[in-house]
């Protein structure tokens, strides 16, 4: 009996499907970050920025660029996976995956790759937009920048996946992004260096995981950071591993997927 099941084909199929999904609705997925970020650059960069002066020795607009790229990458990776996987559950088209011989890890990887493609693409778009406002930007450490870009995108795609697994309604897929993710990112050093904060708030900020992601990326792009890079990279990778194992466990158990 022949069952030479081709894993690569199934993974490729799912990834292409995921990418096609966000490209099909590009007005909802690709345009908004470009528009919002342009506004940020106009208001905080060009209008208010000069009055703020410099931050860690950089023009304020320049300092803001890595933060805004991270903000967009994080929210888009997360949102892509949470909304896609939830709607696959909601429309029952998850049955198409469950009935097939695709192993769980390819299902997870397919959705994560979809989130990563969108996250990275958005990162490039926002960087492109920022160059319109600050054409002289040069990346300090391209290798670190790209590495952090991908790791962040993977990390938040995984988080989006877990959110979708537990989600029972459309409310459930917006609660965490709105009430937890966004505040943590905004307070995680996107707009400022924690060095400008009073001691107490600086210590509190150190407990915010977003701070490490944003600052590692800033180290890549500008060469400055509020935190230790090796520690941050270690934590990001650890979290990716822990979350991957958790996702696979949830898939195996069938939580929220199989009754």
């Amino acid at each position: 009996m022949k069952t030479n099941f081709n894993v690569t084909v199934s993974l490729w199929t799912l990834t292409v499907k995921e990418v096609r999904r966000f490209l099909r609705i590009w007005v909802q997925t690709l345009v908004p970050p470009a528009v919002t970020m342009s506004l940020y650059f106009v208001i905080f960069g060009s209008l208010i920025g000069p009055r703020i002066g410099s931050m860690d020795g950089f023009d304020y607009i320049q300092y803001m660029i890595p933060g805004l790229i991270m903000l967009s990458v994080i929210t888009n990776s997360y949102n892509n996976v949470v909304s896609s996987f939830y709607s696959v559950k909601f429309q029952k088209s998850i049955e198409e995956l469950l009935i097939s011989p695709m192993p769980n890890w390819t299902i997870l990887l397919g959705f994560v790759l979809g989130g990563v493609c969108r996250g990275v693409l958005i990162g490039i778009i926002v960087f492109g937009v920022s160059l319109l406002f600050y054409p002289d930007f040069t990346v300090a450490n391209p290798l670190l920048t790209v590495t952090v870009l991908f790791l962040t995108s993977i990390l938040f795609s995984l988080m989006g996946f877990i959110n979708a697994v537990f989600a029972d309604s459309f409310d459930d897929i917006s609660i965490i992004p709105t009430f937890i993710l966004t505040p943590l990112i905004y307070l995680g050093g996107v707009f400022y260096s924690i060095n400008i904060l009073p001691d107490v708030w600086r210590s509190v900020s150190m407990a915010n995981p977003m701070l490490y992601v944003v600052n590692t990326f800033r180290e890549g792009m500008l060469g400055v950071s509020d935190v230790s890079i090796s520690f941050s990279l270690g934590m990001i990778i650890t979290f990716i591993l822990v979350l991957s194992v958790s996702c696979l466990y949830l898939l195996k158990k069938g939580t929220g997927i199989r009754q």
């Binding site: 081709n6 084909v9 799912l14 099909r24 695709m102």
Partner: peptide, 26 residues
């Protein structure tokens, strides 16, 4: 299945080709 279980926003052809892909058929 008793209930419709494909993505409503995709094209007929894509839906079937994708299902084949999940079975490992290029």
């Amino acid at each position: 299945s008793q209930e419709i279980n494909f993505s409503q926003f995709e094209k007929v052809l894509d839906i079937v080709v994708t299902q084949a892909g999940f079975y490992g058929i290029p």
